[in-house]
């Protein structure tokens, strides 16, 4: 299909981008890598009157060490995340999950920030950001602010970003020494996740000292599996303990039924995949 006609702007600074978005009001839309937005425009599911392309904002591209962790620019492409040795050292979970995003072509155009700001419940990276306790750096008409990943995802395709806000980057605390794993289940090799599980585990002396588990596509936003985390915390790092905890993965979730899977099946998958993700993260089994 052909998108509805729109204006196109390509600001050269973040301030210009914020001003352009402010001027556009509710009719503006940020264009990052375009891998979700362009198909939506073509299907006329989205019809903004102004597209504000962040492609010229070089400062929003790149990965650097930042305190105890990494700061990744919002416009950094998935392929650059994947290729980066710092990512593999500090947050290998991000690299592992990014490798499962769509296909090679998408990963060379799509961006980390675009993926998070789009907030598709079936997208892989929102749950990963939550499991890694990431923080979002945001610029808006009232200046800059930070929002924890856990507060960033508000509802289906909806985030804490206001209409004139620009996501600048994402801060990931180092998870060196943690065990992490992303377990994704999809029908087709290049499809969205029916369910995904991002698990991070810190072990001390054979027990699990700390765990964060976040679920993809088990509700309108990524869901922290708190019951699983509570059951794991202080538990022995054994297959039985993990299996018992994983059985609680459905608690607090709101999976949908759609053409690709029923809610019942998603709930079942959540327990199976949580068991697998935590086991892999903990190096058990």
């Amino acid at each position: 299909m052909i998108p509805v006609s729109f204006d196109y702007q390509r600001p050269s600074t973040v301030d210009e981008a914020v001003q352009a978005l402010s001027a556009a009001g509710d009719d503006g839309k940020v264009l990052a890598g375009g891998q979700s937005l362009i198909p939506m425009l073509r299907l006329r599911l989205s019809a903004p009157s102004v597209l504000i392309d962040l492609g010229a904002l070089a400062d929003l591209r790149g990965i650097r060490e930042d305190g105890d962790g990494l700061l990744i620019g919002a416009m950094t492409r998935h392929a650059d995340v994947l290729a980066n040795p710092l990512v593999r050292r500090y947050v290998p979970l991000l690299a592992q999950a990014t490798a499962t995003v769509a296909d090679r072509q998408v990963r060379h155009l799509g961006t980390l920030g675009g993926s998070l700001a789009h907030a598709d419940p079936a997208g892989d990276l929102p749950a990963v950001a939550v499991a890694l306790d990431a923080t979002m750096e945001i610029a808006g008409p009232d200046g800059q602010r930070t929002v924890p990943a856990g507060d960033f995802f508000v509802d289906y395709l909806t985030t804490a970003l206001g209409p004139a806000d620009v996501l600048l980057g994402v801060r990931f605390p180092s998870h060196e020494g943690w065990g992490t794993h992303y377990e994704k289940f999809q029908r087709m090799a290049q499809a969205w996740a029916l369910v995904g599980v991002a698990a991070t585990v810190r072990r001390e002396n054979g027990t699990i000292a700390e765990a964060r588990v976040a679920l993809t596509n088990m509700g309108p936003v990524p869901v922290r599996a708190r019951a699983v985390e509570d059951a794991l915390t202080g538990a022995a790092s054994t297959a039985d303990a993990i299996a018992a905890a994983a059985g609680l993965a459905g608690e607090g979730t709101r999976p949908t039924s759609d053409l690709t899977a029923s809610a019942e099946y998603r709930a079942h998958l959540a327990t199976v995949l949580t068991g697998r993700a935590v086991s892999a993260a903990a190096g058990v089994g």
């Binding site: 087709m188 090799a189 053409l259």
Partner: peptide, 16 residues
């Protein structure tokens, strides 16, 4: 028709 795009009507790729 619910399977009106290749997101919903899913021919396999080589990887499948």
């Amino acid at each position: 028709l619910l399977t009106g795009t290749f997101v919903d009507y899913t021919p396999p790729s080589a990887a499948d």
